[in-house]
Amino acid sequence: MSLYQIFIEPWERHASAYWPILAMAFFVTAACGLVGNYLVLRRISLVGDAISHSVLPGIAIAFILTNSRSGPPMFIGALVAGVITTLIIEVLHSRTRIKQDAAIGITFSTMFAIGVILISLHGSHTDLDLDCVLFGKLDFLSSKEKIIMGLPGVALTMGMVALIVGCLIVLFYKELLVSSFDPNLAATIGISPRLVHYLLMCILSVVVVSAFTSVGAILVIAMLILPAATSYLLTDRLWVMMLFSLIHSFLSAIGGIHLAVAFKIPTAPATVVCGMIFFVAAWIFSPTHGLIRYWFRSRASVNGECIN
């Protein structure tokens, strides 16, 4: 593996595909990463995983009915599936002795199983098959999409989604902050934490569904959590954390493309691997919360005890 292959080749040989894929990858990771901040802080990261798995039957049914991967029907199908999942989890958790983790596990795996069965019964299809569920189709982006303003249509849509998510977060920054930090306080000052939670879940579903065709159902969780978790290790302020997660998204999108071209692997998992590398780097080297500092501190405290 030469440096040429990693750093230069993607620019030279794949120039026409480079920018659209980079734009798409960045929009996906940015939209996911922004929402992901709140998932991490509210300790519901795995709900993102659950939703991304459980919208699959909705997407599959919409696809089979309309035979296209285009927007609205898939959104509706996915949203219905997502709502059903949320309701089932709620019922299982509140009405039986099943704990929340098991309720989530049962529900999303069932929905996902239904989705996989539907897709495989429908026969192998170039647009929606099990490969798409696993790897996403980030690399096949530019082949047949209409180009608008130099970007393929799907990337533009994803960009819009990311922008809307960003705007919503800026607008409702205060509400999201207080209901994530102290839901009790939120309730007592008239901001219903339930309402905020469901709005967040709606945004999450929209993001997950729009990301589905690019990154599949399973890798979404990485796009959601890695940027937020990385920046959580680097700062103590919420808005800085969101800024850092955008930077993380951008860097891992670029890194992902170069890795993908160099190793001839799909871009989506490569982006995740790249994001993970950044996370590990932050984990080790973060000036405030990094491993190096952690070891240093714990050694210092051991020494302190000796003196005492």
Binding site: L177, V178, F181, L185, I189, G190, I191, D236, R237, L238
Partner: peptide
């Protein structure tokens, strides 16, 4: 551990 400062928390009192 939430990433907010002391003054941010106190400001939340005004949100209502």
């Amino acid at each position: 551990d939430f990433p907010v400062s002391v003054i941010d928390v106190v400001l939340m009192g005004c949100y209502g």
